[in-house]
Design a protein around this nucleic acid. Sequence first.
DNA 1: GTTATCGGTTAACTACAGGTAACTAGTAAC
DNA 2: GTTACTAGTTACCTGTAGTTAACCGATAAC
Lengths: 120, 120
Amino acid sequence: MKEQKKQDATCEEELNAIRDSLEVLGGKWKLRIMRHLNNHINETNTFKKIQRDVDGISAKMLSKELQDLEINLLVSRTVLNTKPVTVRYDITTYGQSVFPVTESLVNWGLNHRRKIKQRG
Amino acid sequence: MKEQKKQDATCEEELNAIRDSLEVLGGKWKLRIMRHLNNHINETNTFKKIQRDVDGISAKMLSKELQDLEINLLVSRTVLNTKPVTVRYDITTYGQSVFPVTESLVNWGLNHRRKIKQRG
DNA sequence: GTTATCGGTTAACTACAGGTAACTAGTAAC
DNA sequence: GTTACTAGTTACCTGTAGTTAACCGATAAC
């Protein structure tokens, strides 16, 4: 019974950790934005440029998602001294640490699709 | 430009694969159910027993989630010849393949929580 | 016949993610 | 003064994930 409780406790902690991860990786846009920033890392990714490049995203969602990503230290925001003012967004080194995690999701997802297509 | 298109194409495939994975790992209950089945693999996990053990889940959600998991070959369903009828659910060997993936989510989430607490 | 168990289903509701469109403020070109 | 560009914000709407509670048919104990 004690072992049971301990197991459930770590289980709960692990589920919390997964919830934390999915807060970043989940949702429709966060990973798309991060991948785009990572694929265009040497460019000046302004708000408008990202909005043009990330297909279908609205200004509202882009604004909200970039704020979330910045709060989580995954993306940095730099106001540039231009006229009109432009803002540059960059993926952080820490932000790049999500990609090994997404890779395991990609691999499992690809394999799962094959598995299901074979109907088992 | 061609390289760009190719890159975006694989990017889209990978995002689809992630979406597929998150269809299984996401949501409030699927992972809890799978972990419970895995932690009690030698027991007869009937519908009611799972509902009692997985804290807070309703019959409706449990029924729906178990159906989803069965369709995805992650859980097997066996009707037992008892009176009244009981149904036994087991995690499949294939179902156990999600745990390495969740482990990387757990590790990233735990590290992220530490990182954010330090305020960066 | 009443109560209890099993494995669910159904209907009505709520909360939140995300979409759409209009709008803001500041600056510059015409 | 009008138009256009920047980076957003605001209000309204919709679709879906999840909750709650009542209900179903089958079987058995009392």
